[in-house]
């Protein structure tokens, strides 16, 4: 979170995490296409020629003014492929909330678990924990024939009982619900933490 008093701006950082090809970029693309251009900036995608995320995708949401203050939400995706661990680490820095986009296909459960553990490790490196960060799980690709039952995915992945949504990001199903939930969680977290002051310049 970043506050600029002179500009009356507050900027939050939300990171979409998850295994390769789980649909993180698809989430951001849907949000970009769905929203009025007045509510968002340009969508930046840093991809390889094979359209795989190389470094990150970025989209800023700006919701006008609230009490004369301008809230901004910077949405990032991380590259899912295992060899981009360093990119994930630096993109996760300063995150105010995380969406974990899981691939619902039964065959991808190990990839989901590996990515979730990777996320926990990255957070611990930063002196943070999964339980203490606003966090939402999205079970994506619910339309595929190999999609596992949500109850099974919950048992395997959602061991802290975080808010969860079913989604078909290619059709936009569940995308906005997931976004709204994580943003609400971020705002609630602002109100409930013991102190806001960690560093002042």
């Amino acid at each position: 979170m970043f506050i600029n008093w002179a500009a009356k701006e507050i900027v939050f950082k939300i990171v979409y995490y998850g295994p390769a090809l789980s649909g993180k970029t698809t989430n951001l693309k849907y949000i970009y296409n769905r929203l009025d251009p007045g509510l968002r900036g340009s969508l930046v995608t840093l991809q390889t020629q094979e359209e795989r995320t190389l470094f990150f995708d970025f989209l800023q949401l700006h919701l006008g003014e609230v009490l004369g203050r301008k809230p901004r939400f910077n949405l990032y995706t991380v590259p899912g492929q295992s060899y981009y661990a360093y990119s994930r680490k630096i993109i996760l820095n300063g995150a105010d909330g995380v969406v974990f986009v899981a691939d619902s296909q039964r065959s991808r459960i190990e990839d989901n678990l590996e990515s979730l553990l990777d996320l926990e490790e990255r957070l611990i490196e930063q002196g943070r924990t999964l339980q203490r960060i606003p966090f939402v799980i999205q079970y994506n690709k619910r339309d595929l024939p190999d999609a596992a039952p949500v109850e099974w995915l919950q048992q395997k992945l959602n061991y802290y009982n975080f808010p969860q949504f079913e989604a078909v990001a290619t059709e936009g199903r569940g995308v906005m619900e997931t976004l709204r939930r994580v943003l609400h969680a971020v705002i609630e977290n602002v109100q409930t933490r013991p102190t806001l002051r960690e560093r002042v310049v």
Partner: peptide, 19 residues
């Protein structure tokens, strides 16, 4: 994205912003 800011909040005063 470098050391010192991991997950931390940060605020910029009006005075510094003007400078």
């Amino acid at each position: 994205m470098t050391k010192g800011r991991n997950g931390k909040r940060f605020a910029l005063s009006e005075d510094v912003f003007l400078k």
